[in-house]
Simulated scan of single mutants.
Amino acid sequence: MGIVLIFFLVVNAYLVEGFDAQRSTKNFTVEYVVFTRSNAIEGHTVSLSNERGLQELFKQQNPTRFISHGWRGDQTSESCNLIRQKYLTRGDYNIFVIDWGISAQNLNYVQVALDSLEAGKQVASFLDRLNEEYDLDFNNTYMIGYSLGAHVVGLAAKHATRGKVNTIFGLDPAGPLFTAADPSIRLTAKDALYVETIHTNAGFNGFSKPIGIASFFPNGGTHQPGCSDFFGSCSHQKSYQYFADSLDVNYKFFAVQCSELIFKVSQKCKSTGNVARMGGEPSNFGRGVEGIYYLTIK
């Protein structure tokens, strides 16, 4: 996703005029592409109104992972493919790729941002349905969202009524229109038992604030090595690439905890002495990981 700075300012000014779910088009249906070890290459598409084949694929005893693309994406997006493949290389998971591309591929970012609120609510209903009919274990469920998708999964977990999702990974959560938004319409640290955000283009395409229980800022969180594009899409995309890499069994990103005030002012880390792993499987839930973390990735 590439958004010029001027557009960033325009849409945030638009936010002041009013940004709420009532302005969503609400005329699209979210679909879910299911992958398991038995169908790791070709997914099976289901929806809230068409669950045919889900009973044969879904295994209640296996961990469940939801993955959402961002603006201009759909089920075929690199963010979804990379993460899905890494999980199924590790083990047998119920993987649900959230496909709201019928809205997300709209060139009008403002409308897509509004529609993300509706997408999140639809995913919440699907979560509740899975729990009611297929015994989905919320405590064994993670939700991973890139860019606007981070807000989609946050809203889904926020609005689910039958349980609390264990972990959310917000991969460079979208900033434009959301930076000053009310917490009720975006990802927050309270949406799951553990919420981790990875910031790679903070203040541009990505959210500038640490909005997870733990928030990781690789290389300072704004610009990533090897990226030279003016619009920041390369640095933005590094968030899901880093996360996918973190799922490799022998690949770990270790970060040091920083003083929040020092980090915000100087973009440098004054270490507290605490160290935590960014991303990975399983998540940091229950390990006491919280606050701001800095790491260098070359």
Rank of each mutant, 00 (worst) to 15 (best):
A192G: 06
V195P: 00
C258Q: 01
I144C: 02
F58K: 00
F169W: 12
N284H: 02
Y146N: 03
V195L: 05
V11A: 00
Q60C: 05
G120Q: 10
G288S: 09
K158D: 12
Q237S: 15
V33W: 04
S266T: 15
F169H: 12
I3D: 00
C234K: 06
N39W: 11
F204S: 09
L9F: 14
Q224W: 09
L57V: 00
D115H: 08
G70N: 06
N39D: 10
V16W: 14
P218W: 04
G288D: 12
D74H: 10
V97D: 01
L171P: 01
A202K: 09
W100C: 04
S24H: 10
Q122N: 05
G53S: 14
G280F: 03
E260P: 08
A113T: 06
A104D: 07
G232Y: 05
N166L: 09
H236E: 04
L88G: 00
A181F: 01
K268A: 13
W100S: 08
L88M: 01
N39V: 06
L114P: 06
C258T: 07
A192N: 08
Q267C: 10
Y240M: 04
G273C: 12
S184I: 08
R84K: 13
N27H: 09
I213N: 14
D99M: 05
S235E: 03
I98Q: 00
R52K: 14
G232K: 03
T197H: 09
P225R: 08
K59V: 00
I297G: 04
E56V: 13
L82N: 01
Q75G: 02
K190M: 13
T76I: 02
D115E: 07
G101N: 07
E56N: 13
L295G: 10
T167I: 03
N106M: 11
A104I: 02
M278E: 11
Q55C: 12
N205A: 14
D229T: 02
Y32D: 01
S259C: 15
D229F: 10
A104Q: 06
K264Q: 08
A244M: 05
R37E: 03
N81W: 04
T64W: 02
T89M: 04
S246L: 05
Y293P: 08
N140S: 13
A244H: 06
M1Y: 15
D137G: 00
V112Y: 11
G206H: 08
L247Y: 05
F96K: 09
N106C: 15
A113Y: 07
D128N: 12
F263T: 01
Y294D: 15
F216M: 09
D229Q: 05
R287H: 11
I211W: 05
S283E: 06
C234E: 05
R162K: 15
N27S: 12
K26F: 02
K270F: 12
